[in-house]
Nucleic acid binder design. Structure first.
Lengths: 213, 213
DNA sequence: GTCTATAGATTGATAGAC
DNA sequence: GTCTATCAATCTATAGAC
């Protein structure tokens, strides 16, 4: 059992508190208290609160994006090899499955995924940009491969259906964090749904929506 | 051209700035400056910043919810009268159409809709609760009528598909506010999509997803 | 009702001893 | 690298004159 360094202790506490309370509500005093380190350590190791946020994001998002990119390229390349177009279902699953499995892989991952879901609509430019900078190239790849799967759709219809799908995905990324009003039935359903089932349900849902009526 | 009262000037400025900058980032100083009134006027007319938020929300959300409730009850009652089950498409359109038409009805409505979209995942308990308190009864009605339309689905599958649909709807409520990275093609598609087309597309998308494969 | 002035609390960041 | 102490800026809310 190796001791965590100060830097890592701060990253873990910040990840947790940024996700739970939001970037602005999580003060450096609370973060360093939870981490069990001195207040001044943040600025020594990370220069600023904003740089700390960047470090929190990149630590987990860079490896995750690498996996999602490989999966998407694999779907694209296999279709080319067979001389067919990729299937929308395979494309969406290549994006969704690593995301949801990653969420369950480590305790902090759930926090980062929730934080990411909220960052898309974050009003603060610096926070939102920090996420888009890392996510946008992957979104463009998804756009490219998925449009190969659905070549018959007019571009504006295709665009909007992808936006709707991103909305559905983005929402479930935040679900574990959202505190719904008391309703035990709903809470039970959420708790009792395993990752495999959720992947199957969301993939099926967005595929139906994308391929349309 | 009647002069706006101080109260209304504050409500309009707060609605705009809460939506643009977020509740915590929109300070009372900036709000009263944009409204052209004195800083102390907020606490005189609304007691606190939090009460101001409540007033901003209720001003527009109560009338909108009344319309959505009537539309949903109408779909339910007409199905009962005919001795049939309601159609999922009609149910979702009864919810979606008033929401998106309302968004285009007045300048401030777009701000409130965006604010509402973000409030669902707001970490601050008091802000999130302010919205859920007003929206939850309507959500329960939607749940009831839509489950009549899709009685063959297992409840957990039904629940998740509705959640995915709420995610898609929630996302497009925020779209006008989200600043995507520069990509003129996407910005053009968003700008050139009229409300009628968007209603048609999102209704079709969620209906396909809900009815499933 | 509207204003000025300020209280009282909290924040991110930093200087400087060890 | 870690600590204490503190600065400078910000915020909401309020007291009290007009």
């Amino acid at each position: 059992m190796s001791e965590l360094g100060t830097k890592e202790k701060i990253l873990n506490a910040a990840e947790h508190l940024f996700a739970r309370d939001g970037f602005h509500n999580a003060s450096l005093r609370i973060i360093t208290e939870e981490a069990g380190v001195n207040l001044a350590a943040v600025n020594y190791h990370f220069n600023s609160k904003e740089s700390l946020l960047h470090a929190v994001i990149e630590r987990r998002l860079l490896p995750l994006n690498q996996i999602r990119r490989e999966r998407l390229e694999q779907v694209r390349d296999e279709a080319v090899k067979k001389g067919e177009k990729p299937r929308a279902r395979d494309v969406m699953k290549a994006f969704l499955e690593p995301t949801l499995r990653f969420r369950d892989s480590e305790p902090g991952a759930k926090d980062l995924i929730a934080l990411m879901g909220r960052a898309v609509s974050e009003p603060d430019d610096t926070i939102r940009s920090a996420f888009f900078k890392l996510v946008w190239p992957l979104f463009m790849l998804l756009y490219e491969v998925l449009s190969q799967a659905l070549p018959e759709l007019p571009e504006n219809v295709f665009f909007w259906r992808l936006i709707f799908s991103m909305g559905a995905m983005n929402f479930i990324m935040q679900i574990p964090q959202i505190k719904f009003p008391e309703n035990q039935k709903f809470i039970n359903i959420i708790d009792e749904t395993d990752t495999d089932s959720l992947i199957e349900m969301i993939t099926g849902y967005v595929t139906s929506g994308l391929e349309g009526s």
